[in-house]
Design a protein around this nucleic acid. Structure first.
Lengths: 340, 340
DNA sequence: TCGTGTTCTGGGAGCGTTCACAGAATAGGT
DNA sequence: ACCTATTCTGTGAACGCTCCCAGAACACGA
């Protein structure tokens, strides 16, 4: 252990009290905007605060109040997924915005390894935050289970089906996937496949299910390939594979837009026209969608709202506000463009 | 104010001490892995911890030790920049990785509004963290100034030139920009322009300077356009503007890869061939670079190393380890591909 | 003048740790 | 047997705040 750096001792509430000639009780009252403080005292204290350069010591405050007004947001990030997933960023921003309105501080915790996982669990348990939001959880994720056991108010964004009786917000991936697949079928496609990804996450598995729902009897497992990552290269590999299995394929549902973009490129390379020969649809309506030629038909999910909603339910949970349901499903929207 | 939720009282170190029939001093010693604890006591305490379900209260610990083993990482995020900037994610991951090695917890703080700015400053001052890393700071950013005044050990990733005497890690944007522009000129281009962006950040301004350095007398301010954001649409607008100002333009240095991608599309639309008629170079070597046709010549910056290095210097700062310089510049690398 | 509120203030107790110090137990050498 | 190290343990005193209670100060009507 190294010696702590010897920064000059910070002013405490006592120093302020002394400088203002009042007691620390009165100072505390001013600090917290409580009533029953005379105008004279308030002014003297405010002057004293400025004079001695006082700032609250949060650790002490947390210890005394048993709350922190901070919310943890756990990002489980195997490899580099989150860098590629456009939703995470929007969820983050939405959450931050909502919490900010209530003067809560959002702190993001990134998990990249098992070691991180333990440390984060420790951090959450340790009383650094009043509640937790978990995004992009995977099935049987150690951290999800740990978080669920901590007893802290928790909201999941996306619903890991391995956990029951949790609070969550999410979209109905299955229905959305079914609907866009149906729409693709509606354009008269005969042989439709899927490039799935991240089947270990709720989003991945549910999208595959929706696809299957849409096809019903016509579902052919040979026309489904799956990859661990939602990435463009998954799309490239997947499309090659599908083409070799079924050269006559005329429709593809990609697990997300990045995958669709990869698939699109491969189709073009192979001399096929999109949407004439093959129709392609994606998921997410990320910036990939508008960048493809032709533009991608896809499902828009309200990622920022997801974040806001997660924050709102967590705040309710923390404040003991009763809620009808403990799960919220937000509506998605099909963006129908040129690729199908 | 709402009533605090009435979770059952958590076990404290006293409970453990009682259950193990020792004093809290001994428990504390076990908790912190200190020597001078008998084997019998250690075992009894470990059993007691498990039995009563004890977890450390960090607020109390922080109060007593005056340190938290947590590091704040401030992301100033006007609009949606950080979602588009591929470097931020890599910096985050690199930082997290390095801190994780030393068992420090990284907490990310997002600033999206002035309100956030104040709250984050309060949070940092409040003793929640032992040090701060600031990324993507802009010139005269309120938060940068605030952070610099808090007196907490701080490292900037990127060097806001409005602040002197700070610790930072970064790349030499100016030199890198000069070099890649020179290389572009080396392919025989006569009329070379630049689509700059984010001139209010060190990266933006320095890249423009480097461009100017490379051109020397041949620098023509009319061939420079600039936009607030590093985005594809900036590239589209910028390229249109440049083409209208100088239809004979045969070289473009884009402020980053997203911009270059936009420019590329516009050039193709206008019937020009890249690299035959016009050479284009970018910056960042993000995933855009490999996705363009032709592939983008660009500058690779070691974003993850930037993060690791920032973490390392911050740790040194915190532990009072002397450092030769208080700034670190990491090497960039030109990735020369088909677009020029 | 006295009560009776109401507004304001001070200070003790407590939040759950760590730290420093004193003292107990043990081991090892004469 | 004693002395001296060494290992181990318990306890009081912080750390800096909030909460709560008791009481002071003040206002106002009877």
């Amino acid at each position: 252990m190294n010696a702590p750096p010897d920064r000059p001792r910070r002013a405490t509430i006592f120093d302020v009290a002394a400088a203002a000639n009042v007691s620390r009780g009165t100072v505390s009252r001013v600090l917290n905007g409580e009533p029953y403080v005379s105008e004279a005292a308030r002014e003297a204290i405010e002057a004293a605060i400025a004079k001695v350069g006082y700032v609250r010591n949060m650790a002490a405050r947390n210890l005394a109040t048993q709350r922190t007004r901070a919310i943890g947001l756990v990002i489980h990030e195997p490899h580099q997924v989150f860098l590629e997933d456009p939703n995470i960023g929007a969820i983050l921003l939405g959450t931050n915005e909502r919490l900010s309105e209530e003067d809560y501080q959002l702190v993001c915790l990134i998990i990249g390894s098992d070691r991180d996982s333990n440390r984060v669990a420790e951090y959450l348990r340790g009383g650094f935050v009043d509640g937790v939001i978990v995004v992009s959880a995977r099935e049987n994720d150690p951290i999800s289970n740990a978080v669920a056991q901590i007893g802290l108010p928790t909201v999941f964004v996306g619903h890991p089906s391995s956990l029951t009786d949790i609070n969550f917000v999410g979209i109905d991936n299955r229905t959305a996937a079914r609907e866009i697949t149906q729409r693709l079928l509606g354009t008269g496609r005969q042989q439709v496949g899927m490039i799935a990804a991240a089947l270990d996450r709720d989003s991945g598995a549910e999208r595959l299910q929706g696809f299957q729902d849409a096809l019903g009897d016509r579902f052919d497992p040979d026309l489904v390939v799956d990859f661990p990552l939602y990435s463009r290269s998954s799309g490239v590999l997947g499309m090659h594979e599908l083409l070799s299995r079924a050269p006559g394929i005329d429709g593809v549902f990609a697990g997300n837009d990045a995958i669709a973009a990869g698939a699109l490129d491969v189709l073009k390379e192979s001399g096929r026209s999109v949407p004439l020969n093959v129709g392609v649809v994606g998921f997410d309506d990320s910036d990939w969608a508008m960048r493809c030629t032709p533009r991608l038909s896809t499902v828009r999910q309200p990622a920022d709202l997801l974040g806001r909603e997660a924050a709102s339910s967590l705040l309710d949970l923390i404040n003991g506000v009763p809620r009808a349901a403990h799960g919220t499903i937000l509506a998605t929207q099909i963006m129908w463009r040129g690729s199908a």
